[in-house]
């Protein structure tokens, strides 16, 4: 069956003009904004949240190219972003809305959630924008959604034992549950 295709493995980002091999800054101080963009929205609403596509659409830190040169990162290298509320490993990519030196943008999603502020200041709405953050280069990998949820919230694993959580097998890009296979339940060939 021929379906119209709405999949896109990773968002389209511009090429970097200057690529520094060695960064001049180890830890970059910046302002974090979160929100939605069209790639994240399309992937989330289609329901493909376990997939690599969602990881690339939502778990990406959009940076000004000058900031990327300072840190010595290329498109799709990984960076560690830390705030007062947590830390998370994200892909780095050149922002489509540059220049905005000193500001990073992360699409909303489980990755951004770990670093945004839950403070509502009695206004019901958490502060998702304008949070002080630091960015540094890292070798760690960006986790898939299911792995990230397990690593952050530890609801169904032994939360005392960090080693178990760190070294557990990946939950992968398909639902994990006991029962019949999804393929048997419904005929599809996406």
């Amino acid at each position: 069956m021929h379906y119209a295709n709405t999949y896109l493995e990773r968002p389209v980002v511009g090429d970097l003009e200057n690529v520094a091999q060695e960064g001049t800054t180890k830890v970059l101080k910046c302002m974090l904004n979160t929100g939605s963009d069209i790639y994240q929205g399309a992937c989330k609403k289609r329901g493909s949240t376990l997939k690599e596509e969602y990881k690339n659409a939502s778990g990406t830190c959009y940076m000004d190219p000058r900031d990327m040169v300072k840190l010595g990162v290329k498109n799709w290298d990984t960076v560690l972003v830390k705030t007062d509320y947590g830390e998370v490993v994200l892909n780095a990519a050149k922002s489509r809305d540059a220049p905005h030196e000193g500001t990073i943008f992360v699409c909303k999603g489980p990755w951004a959630n770990t670093i945004v502020s839950h403070e509502t200041y009695c206004c019901s709405d958490p502060t998702y924008k304008g949070i002080h953050a630091t960015v540094e280069k890292t070798d760690r990998k960006v986790l898939l959604m299911a792995d990230l949820m397990r690593w952050v919230y530890k609801k169904y694993v032994d939360e005392e034992d960090d080693d178990v959580v760190e070294n557990m097998e990946s939950l992968g890009e398909r639902p994990v549950y006991n029962g019949r296979k999804w393929e048997e339940l419904i005929d599809h060939d996406i």
Binding site: T6, A42, G47, T49
Partner: peptide, 17 residues
């Protein structure tokens, strides 16, 4: 793009049971 991708959902992750 958003509306089309939502209507043509991802059946891999559809909750069925």
């Amino acid at each position: 793009r958003l509306g089309a991708s939502k209507v043509m959902e991802d059946m891999d992750q559809r909750l069925l049971v």
